[in-house]
Structures are given as structure tokens and as C-alpha cells.
Amino acid sequence: MAIALLLAILLVILACVYLFIAHPVWFPAGVSAHAAGVDHQFAVAFWLLGALFVAGHIALGISLMRARRRGKVTYTQGDWRLEALWTVLIAVLFFGFNVAGVRLWSQMKFQQPESDAVQVEVTGTQFEWYFRYAGADGKLGDTDAQRFAHPEEGNPLGIDPDDPAGKDDMVSTSLVLPVGRDVDLTLRSNDVIHSLFIPAMRFKQDAVPGMSIHAHFRPMQTGEYEISCAELCGTGHYRMRASVKVVSEAEFKQWVKSKELPSTAK
């Protein structure tokens, strides 16, 4: 039985290591400014924790290999020196790892977006994402979903028709961004909690009713990337998708212009 158990542990080590090396599915290529840092920290994590996983299982295997059939067992209640050594070792490893991660978090959360950042308001509703741009005046109009929201009349967010700032607001169902410029998102919701997840940007942020949450990132590559919802929001949660279209600065300007016209005409 000892040998069978050893083989099983060996199988587990090999299969798990193989699975992570072969990784039939894996992170999509990171295309935001902070993605490289995150991916580096992930690599550190997988190597460090993978090594501990293998070491732990090898230790478990050796302890089974050393099992005795007969003869005297060494009577021991423990060993404080070994215990202390192990505790300090693991604490240093884990906290060292933690400090590196905390630095990354500070870079992501406490560096303000550049002043030329694109401002986009993101609203999650059951089961659609809306992205609102301020238009030429640079100001978003007031909203009151309870009074004015009529998805069927082209005003899903309930922009106040009497607020002049709202006249040129553009509402889009996909997030269009210029490459290489920060985007400052303001996340909101009018019904339940949603979560804006853009795997390629290494970005996720809940949209919580009653709160306006700011989060920012900078897309570095043009292309189209999927957005999913990561917080259970009801029966349509699984299909609450949208996309980010990262385009050149010129294309972005053109898109803004094309969107502005019909919006003001309304």
C-alpha cells in the first residue's frame, strides 16, 4: 500500500506539473500597460508555489517511503528548532512574495490617470453593458434611471432630457478606446452588482449600485477584446458580454465625430 500511495503522489506531482506546463488554455496575451507587471508576478507565483507544491509532495512521499514494518519507532514529541526554522523560512518566503505584490497593487491603484485620459462612464444593467462618453462639452449629463430610463426609446441610462450637458452625450454598447492613452472608467449600476472583466487588460472591477467607482488602465495594442461579467447578476449573467475596440488616435477621433452627430440630432 505504501508503494501504491507513493506512485499516486508521484502521479499527482507529474500530472499537475505537466498540466501547468502544457496549459491547454491559458492567459490571453496582456495588452494593457500594467499587464506585464501582473504577468511577471503571476510567473513568480507559479514558480514559487509550484516549487513548494512539488517539495511538499516529495516530503510527503519520502515520509511514506521511510515507513517501517517492524523495529523501534523513534519516540519524539517534536523539535522546536526545526519548527522555528520552518516557520521563519515560510514566513520570509510568503511575506517577501506579498511585498512584491503590494508594490504592484500600489502602482495600479494609487497612480492617478494622466490628465488627458479618456473619461468613460460604464453602466451595468441586467444584462447589457453601456459606455457613455461626454461629447464635445466634456461633461456628462445628469441621469435618473427611475424617471427617464427607456431602453426602447434609446435612453437606457435615463439621461435627463432637460440637462444641456447631456445633449451631446454618446452611449455605446462597446467600449472604444484610443491606443496608448489612459482610460478613466466610472463604474455604475442601476439594478444589481455586475463586474466588468477584460481578461486581456488584466482588469476587473465591480459595478455597484449606489456607488461610482473609478478605475483606470491604458490599452497598449490595437485590436478587439472581449468583456465578460464576473459577478453573478441573474439568469443572463453568462451572456452579458461586450467588447473593447482599441483603435488609433485618429480612428478614435473619427468614431467620436460619427457618434456625436446622430446623438445631437435626436
Partner: peptide, 18 residues
């Protein structure tokens, strides 16, 4: 062992609710 990984907010942002 995946605990200390998920304990890092910068990494948890990606893995949270997956």
C-alpha cells in the same frame, strides 16, 4: 498554496470570481 496567490489584490483582480 493558491491561497497566498489569491491573497494578492493585484493578482486577485484577474482571478476573482473565476
Amino acid at each position: 498554496l493558491t491561497g497566498p496567490l489569491l491573497a494578492q489584490p493585484a493578482l486577485d483582480i484577474y482571478l476573482h470570481d473565476t
